[in-house]
Amino acid sequence: MTERGVISRRDFLRRSARIGVSAVAGAGVAGLCFDPAGPAPKTADSAAIRSFDFSIPAETPQIAVVRGPDRKETLRLALEALGGIEQFVAPGDRVLLKVNAAFSSPAMLGATSHPELVFEAARHCFAAGARSVTVADNPINDPSACFTLTGIADAAQKAGAVVMLPRPQRFDRISIPEGRLILNWPVFSAPLNGADKVIGLAPVKDHHRSGASMSLKNWYGLLGGRRNLFHQNIHGIIRELSILVRPTLVVLDGTVSMIANGPTGGSMSDLKQTDTLIVSTDPVAADVLGARLLGLSPAALPFIGEAAAAGAGIADVDRLNIKELKL
């Protein structure tokens, strides 16, 4: 240390340079980040406008209705009647089984897709050469509890299928074409994006808000977010869901129908043995047939007419060629 404070020319220049560089760096960052206008309000980002069409072009819908109490046999018969699962699933296909796993209640209460049917459907897909089968739903109750307690997870695993849980990053914000409700709304898109074919597996159920929950209402389980806001317009949202997803096939399970206290049920006394399984390429027609099990006409279910008008299917089932069989 010197007795007298001195600074060499070199030190002075070095110090000045440091200050200059710091000032310029600071000014640079400030300039790059300068935002005189301020932040914009949070508005709904413009979401991709899209829908998911997995239907196989055909002149007329193909529908089979099989009466009997044994799901394994009724499904086999129904598929046979339609020319075999090979008509719908090609070798190498990735198949999505959109089940109804909405509630964490046991299969016997009929509030969810029956695990035996999930197993059989997955098995048929693999038999047709499917590369993979994914089982997915965005349930109302806790997702993993739902898949476990309904027995669907076990059934899927036994058949070699994979359960895809609704994790946040598996949703995309989507608007459907000319949608008024599904606008910039989070949709459980990952299972749809990764599929070549989509099969809906829904039970026939009473539903207090919409009248009935069957194959069209089953697509509700693809919505995320605070979706129960759509109860403000239940028939409108089912109509839009019928535009969002056009399935390859729906399997509507009326072996046991929930005739009261839907869609949750909770008691065996809410159920009725109706011994019917409907396999259809047309979800609207399937729901008309399913409604009969609940003693409801299409007029009592406005969403049927709206979905038909939206081009999702045909409500006038009497003019369709329906293959009816009995075990």
Binding site: G26, A27, A30, C33, F34, P36, A37, G38, P39
Partner: peptide
């Protein structure tokens, strides 16, 4: 706010004056 928002809102640019003067 710059660290939190990656932006520097309008009048906050005055802070740069203080920084440069402090450096000197």
């Amino acid at each position: 706010t710059l660290l939190a928002t990656r932006t520097l809102y309008a009048g906050l640019l005055w802070g740069l004056v203080t920084i440069v003067l402090t450096l000197v």
